[in-house]
Design a protein around this nucleic acid. Structure first.
Lengths: 292, 292
DNA sequence: CGGGTCTTTGATTAGGTTCAATAAGAGTGG
DNA sequence: CCACTCTTATTGAACCTAATCAAAGACCCG
């Protein structure tokens, strides 16, 4: 169902015990299977160095292969997940079985938080590549928060971060044009890749056009067309899943594309028109390519 | 700027010290100005009855009048708010000064959570009516979580609830038609009013069409037209801010309106056609009025 | 009563979806 | 290794939903 992708950790563990809520198997092969608190905090990008490296306190890792489901909607909640490596999607399923993509968790991201409230996961998480996840049993987490006050704050902070991210998403879906959404999506990806130490200028999409469209509230055709249009005016290069960022600033500030009539074959450098950077007009402006 | 609304607590406190981050004034007039832990939990609808009514532990209330700002974007964060009575909106302001409405907090809702992560509020909260809010200093809250373990869980739970709500919002914006969005909005309002002990069948909107539109990712004209259409086919009655719910089930399951040609003047009972309740077709169905 | 805000409704436009056909890969099995 | 299949991606054309532009009516408040 999901195609492979280049340069991925190709763990060849026979993934037993997966698909079930509590994975209790404790294999000892292949790479790291446990992280201590320090490593956990590093991955989560929260500033906390425990006084003493408490090596009693370990967090188990689990591996999932492309296409495998980490948890499903309605499944009893008891653990959060932190992405150590790999790419995933979280989705909602509506009454007709249609997927609505909510996020694309990658290294350092936390997911499963939506399960706390009702004690059941409200969404479904699927691996888009082979993944290495850190298990965070919720009980263990809260206990830890009680013993380490800074860590407790970090928990709240990460949850708050998620909320802010969702807010930005709502804002984007509510107000931006298709082009602006796709542009921002690319910018976000680029930045995330940079944070993870990959190239921010050339990368492979781990998700399909359909999944991107669902995430952005667009159809797959619109996503495809928009990427082609960006390619045409030289903002990016596109070849299937491979994306090259050519003009990050233009993508960052793009609101609407110039009418297609005026953008025939000018492959060179686009985006060199300055913007009137702001004002108070009622959104009916068509802020063009623009560099801030 | 914001018009008044019927039947609202008309507190006539001279609202000094408002608009600033930490409100330290402690007036002693008019109604209740402090709540204990029990009352707080009741309002928040979290199941927690403290063993002993610790009346040392009190939470201050603050009153805001229609149009007043509770906090602004970028303002240093230190307290959360729980709505004790009244109606508000939270908004994001984009680079051109356009408002994007994120939520309409009302009795029992928590807001300000987005400030935890960056230590600054990420959104702005404005009173749509006179409001009575309970202040929840974040420090005090976390301390409380440490001393009362069930309360700590409640904090996580409420934050998780917020996240789930946002997810539902994203899903709605990403996938539903204008009509379905407005219908769901009305259903949600109706349910909230019921929870608060008001009539779920007849109520006044506290927000403008513009604000509803912003919240739903639509223009004010579309909101107005959709309400008129619902009125025409007998799902609701509309008169300015006053809404009467006539067919809740139809609103609940509405996905798309029948073509306007086929809905001329049939004021009586609509919605009595059954639905093929589900299947796997790719969303291109036009699930009609429908009762589940 | 007059000015301002909010709401309704109409006419027109356009951005994005839908439907459809083709192409490009990736995986499988002979 | 190649044919076959299945999924994914691209592109075109027609259609349609919701936005935009415009004008008039309703309500509120000073």
């Amino acid at each position: 169902m999901l195609s492979t992708q280049t340069s991925e950790i190709r763990s060849e563990i026979s993934s037993s015990a997966l698909h079930s809520s509590n994975v209790e198997a404790g294999w000892q092969r292949q790479g790291k299977l446990w992280s201590n608190l320090k490593e956990l905090c590093d991955v989560l990008r929260i500033p906390f160095s425990p006084a003493h490296t408490d090596d009693e306190l370990l967090f188990q890792h689990v591996q999932f292969k492309t296409g495998q489901r980490i948890h499903t909607i309605g499944q009893p909640f008891d653990t959060l997940y932190v992405v150590h490596s790999g790419f995933l999607k979280t989705v909602l399923i509506d009454e007709f079985g249609n997927e609505q993509v909510l996020s694309f968790p990658m290294k350092g991201d936390l997911f499963g938080v939506d399960g706390i409230h009702t004690k059941r996961y409200a969404s479904e998480a699927v691996a888009l590549s082979n993944c290495d996840l850190i298990l965070l049993p919720f009980k263990k987490l809260t206990a830890l928060g009680r013993s380490h006050v800074e860590f407790e704050h970090a928990i709240y902070s990460v949850m708050s971060r998620e909320l802010v991210r969702e807010q930005a998403m709502v804002s984007m879906l509510g107000a931006l044009s298709a082009e602006a959404r796709v542009a921002r999506f690319l910018v976000n990806l680029s930045e995330r890749y940079a944070e993870m130490g990959y190239s921010s200028k050339l990368f492979n999409l781990r998700m399909t056009r359909h999944e991107i469209g669902s995430y952005l509230g667009l159809t797959l055709e619109t996503v495809s067309r928009t990427l082609s249009a960006f390619n045409e005016i030289g903002l990016i290069t596109v070849d299937q899943r491979s994306i090259g960022i050519k003009d990050l600033e233009a993508l960052r500030t793009l609101r609407r594309l110039p009418p297609s009539s005026s953008r025939a074959k000018q492959v060179g450098k686009a985006s060199k028109q300055a913007t009137t950077p702001s004002s108070d007009r009622p959104a009916s402006d068509w802020g063009q390519l623009a560099t801030a």
